[in-house]
């Protein structure tokens, strides 16, 4: 199945519409449901995202392994203190951490595109909602656009950390979020793809090195940095900065880099920080 950005852009131009509009019609048709029914499903997805991204702000959530927890609450409480990232940045990172912690505690999340990277898109959409006073209904096109980006990456490359490293998981989630944010800010389809390209370029080569193999550390941190990556990527594109390399080729590059990564740097907990002495001691303690 071939599904490329270049074709999607062509279709957007032809029909004079946004990426989300094409995705909405195509996916509803493929699932044999009406676009309105698909919208309703997207609203349910947003509801679950809302819950997971706020649950850890007020209460400390710990993983079932017991190794990590409580980061989201710490960052949330710090949001009004003098900081470099500012209240908006800190709130967004806290929300990304919250979903990651809910995930690690065996709570309910939406894999977007995977469970390990599930914190990024909810935090980014929640940020847009707050910043631009949007309703959940108005966020739905963002989900469609995010879905289109994720689909392109999944079909022409990979969204699995075991296959392509963290760049394939958190990188894809950031690219999805960046493209969604551009569309929600009124950007053109080309700008959404530039933003998605930037998000992948920023972290190209990022390895997957979970301590003890748990989806916890550094995963939750990479969800926090992932939402910030989505913001700066979207803002760069909205400012008119363009990627010299088109999105399809950036995705291909990401895939090739992933294939070049040795297995020790792809979710096996044998390389990166997972191979450090301290991580080995933690593995001994919690595994």
């Amino acid at each position: 199945m071939v599904y490329k950005a270049v074709d999607l852009l062509e279709e957007c131009k032809e029909k004079q519409c946004k990426i989300s509009a094409i995705m909405r019609i195509e996916e509803a048709e493929a699932a044999s449901i009406t676009p309105e029914e698909l919208d309703a499903w997207m609203l349910d997805v947003l509801e679950i995202m809302d819950q997971s991204s706020t649950q850890g702000l007020e209460e400390e959530i710990f993983s079932i392994s017991g190794m990590t927890g409580g980061f989201a609450k710490k960052v949330w409480e710090h949001r009004k203190s003098p900081s470099l990232s500012g209240e908006f940045g800190l709130s967004s990172m806290a929300k990304a951490l919250s979903t990651s912690e809910v995930n690690a505690s065996m709570g309910r999340i939406v894999a977007a595109p995977t469970a390990g990277a599930s914190g990024i898109l909810p935090a980014a959409l929640s940020g847009a909602k707050e910043k631009f006073n949007l309703s959940n209904e108005e966020l739905v096109p963002g989900l469609y656009t995010a879905g289109a980006i994720g689909k392109i990456i999944a079909l022409s490359a990979t969204i699995s950390g075991a296959d392509g490293g963290c760049q394939a998981e958190c990188g894809s989630a950031s690219a999805m979020a960046a493209a969604a944010l551009v569309e929600l800010m009124g950007g053109a389809p080309e700008q959404s793809f530039h933003a998605a390209s930037f998000a992948l370029i920023h972290i190209m080569g990022l390895i997957c090195d979970p301590i003890a193999g748990f989806v916890e550390f550094p995963c939750s941190l990479r969800n926090a940095s992932g939402v910030m990556n989505a913001y700066i990527s979207a803002d760069l594109a909205m400012a008119g900065v363009e990627s010299l390399v088109p999105f399809d080729e950036v995705v291909e590059a990401m895939y090739r880099v992933g294939k070049l990564l040795p297995e020790s740097l792809r979710e096996t907990a044998l390389g990166g920080i997972a191979a450090s002495d301290t991580a080995k001691a933690l593995e001994e303690k919690y595994l």
């Binding site: 997805v45 505690s105 939406v110 999944a154 989806v215």
Partner: peptide, 20 residues
């Protein structure tokens, strides 16, 4: 074929789509 439900989903209990 892969569809949007795979990209924005599954809705699941964590922590891992493959292990959980």
């Amino acid at each position: 074929e892969l569809d949007v439900f795979d990209i924005l989903g599954p809705v699941m209990i964590g922590p891992s789509s493959s292990h959980t």
